[in-house]
Design a protein around this nucleic acid. Structure first.
Lengths: 218, 218
DNA sequence: ACCAACTTAGGTCAATAGACCAATATTGAT
DNA sequence: ATCAATATTGGTCTATTGACCTAAGTTGGT
């Protein structure tokens, strides 16, 4: 039986914001702005992320939007921040069954990860984030946070699979795993050019990673 | 001794265009526009790719730019096209030394590929292309062309490394290799968050891929 | 009931976007 | 040298962007 959360797929929670002083309505406003902005980013890309469109999407005035975020880059940074938080907590909340034969847990996690990157939301968001990260140091930092969480997650499983490895080796392997998996986005992500060969690629990547971990020599 | 072309690193040629009817000056114009557009895309991203900026970069009028490309999307598509061609020919022109022990050629090619993705040009261009590919089918098609060339390249090497494998298996493995390598862009590409762990990641990925090819069971 | 937090409705403003065009200059084959 | 094809200029036009503003309303905790 699966866990309620975690389990068969990665659960990336809806965006939230740090509660701020003031009425609860104000927080709702911020959260709504972030979520609709994310929707816009996913559906139409960064180019469509204009203050007017966001305001329209929220059914509020541009003036009101400016009340919450005094500039566009404030809004964008808050959005990136919220996105990073959502993925970090997705990593932290993931719980796996530790039963089964050696490597089964790892294989399971790899499959879950590859399931998430094929998601429309994840494919679109990360392709946008990568482009932004090339030019915005802040975005790059958030991206690194997300990947650090993913590395933690895999390092733990690697540690359980190969208990004799020291922490540095675990984290090195885990980083390589995440790098390998993340890159699959471009091939088997949503609407990506090799989505039709998804099954085959998942199988190969799974096997390769499990073999890599089992055969690793410090 | 290395080959003149091919050899120690991937050589992505400068952008060119199909010669058109008219004066040679016209062709120079088109080529200049494409190259300066690429420069702008690499340096400042798709958002900076405006007709005015391109014209300024070329030292020509916006009106003249419109003479060459009647709309912006015409220009952008020609640019993507030229970029795809440049990478395809980079793949086709690559020649490797086939001497050395088993797997040496493969390892060499992997290192060359990873060398290219760490390039400023390649990192920036591909992160932009991925974002565009999510929304523009034409971009996706060009991207697929590029990857198909890369797959061909690796399939040949895989064939030489494991001559007993049939063509389908070769191409399957090659696709997995390219997918694994391409994804490293986001981690060890130019200005990317794990560039400082580049050496270690290259080593692990190299080993993993070579092991995968040598141990593959049809 | 009070008052700070929130929201709307209007608008202005300078900057920049892509598209378009008529007039002029250059080219190169004849 | 001519002249039609080609290339280039400099400008207009309309639309959109982010930022900013004032003045008037609504909401909700105390």
């Amino acid at each position: 039986m699966m866990n309620q959360r975690g389990g068969t797929e990665m659960v990336v929670p809806d965006l939230t914001a740090q509660p701020r002083q003031g009425y609860s309505r104000g927080n709702q406003g911020v959260v709504q702005i972030l979520r609709k902005s994310q929707k816009l980013l996913v559906d139409e890309g960064f180019g469509a992320l204009t203050l007017r469109r966001i305001a329209a999407e929220c059914g509020m005035t541009q003036g009101n939007l400016s009340y919450y975020f005094k500039s566009k880059s404030d809004l964008v940074m808050a959005l990136i921040d919220a996105i990073a938080t959502s993925y970090r907590s997705a990593c932290e909340n993931l719980e796996l069954e530790a039963d089964g034969e050696t490597g089964a847990e790892l294989r399971r996690l790899v499959e879950i990860y590859l399931g998430d990157i094929a998601t429309r939301r994840t494919t679109r968001i990360f392709t946008e984030l990568w482009a932004m990260a090339s030019r915005e140091e802040q975005v790059r930092a958030r991206l690194k946070e997300i990947y650090d969480s993913a590395v933690d997650m895999f390092a733990a499983v690697v540690g359980r699979t190969r208990p004799e490895l020291d922490d540095e080796a675990r984290r090195g392997i885990a980083l390589a795993i995440v790098a390998i998996l993340e890159g699959q986005t471009v091939f088997i992500g949503h609407d990506m050019p090799f989505a039709d060969q998804r099954e085959m690629l998942v199988e190969v990547v799974c096997e390769t990673i499990v073999a890599m971990v089992l055969r690793w020599e410090g």
